[in-house]
């Protein structure tokens, strides 16, 4: 019974008196066209005049913002690179300057040390020479004293033995002996 009803619709449509196929029923054509024209026209106006320009503007402004931000980021990146370069430069300069200062200081100290050493050496040599010359004079003095003492001692010893010699003879004898030895 329910199966039979599947075939029924067509019969029902015809029985109702209207056309069997609603889309081709012409009574509603003017109404359809009229409302389509009004509604489609209204939609076109609303979209093209107000909505789409605004939506496009929003999308464009977003793209602009993104592009601007990217530009800004690139600029800042560039700036930071530059700053780093400058810092490296400054660092290298400072390092060179420090080295230079250190070298200068070292050179100065070395020169001072050399000068001092030279001065001290000179003094020492002077004093040494002085001392040596003093020793020399003392030695020659002492040597001459020794000869005198030896002459005197020879005179004295010979006097004790009862041989009188004068001073010049005694000196001669001493000189002879010391020269033989020397």
């Amino acid at each position: 019974m329910y199966f039979l009803s599947l075939a029924a619709p067509a019969a029902h449509g015809e029985a109702a008196g209207g056309a069997a196929f609603p889309p081709f029923d012409p009574w509603h054509f003017p109404s359809q066209l009229f409302w389509l024209a009004i509604l489609f026209g209204a939609l076109y106006l609303a979209l093209s005049r107000f909505i789409l320009p605004k939506l496009g503007g929003v999308i464009e402004s977003r793209e602009d913002t993104i592009a601007d931000s990217l530009d800004e980021a690139a600029r800042l990146n560039e700036q930071s690179k530059e700053a780093k370069q400058q810092q490296d430069l400054a660092l290298a300069e400072a390092r060179a300057k420090a080295r230079e200062t250190a070298d200068k200081a070292r050179a100065k100290v070395e020169a001072e040390i050399a000068a001092e050493t030279a001065k001290v050496d000179g003094e020492l040599a002077e004093r040494l020479a002085e001392a040596e010359s003093r020793i020399q004079t003392m030695r020659t003095e002492a040597m001459s004293n020794v000869e005198q003492i030896a002459t005197n001692a020879t005179q004295a010893m010979l006097g004790r033995l009862g041989i009188a010699v004068n001073e010049a003879e005694a000196r001669q004898a001493v000189a002879r002996n010391t020269q033989q030895e020397g």
Binding site: S31, W35, I51
Partner: peptide, 25 residues
């Protein structure tokens, strides 16, 4: 002389137009 009645077809047309305007608006 034209039958320009507001029909169910026009109503659903109006609904879709209204939805488009609301959504995109």
């Amino acid at each position: 002389g034209f039958d320009l009645s507001f029909t169910n077809a026009a109503f659903y047309m109006l609904v879709s137009v209204a939805l488009i305007i609301i959504f995109f608006g």
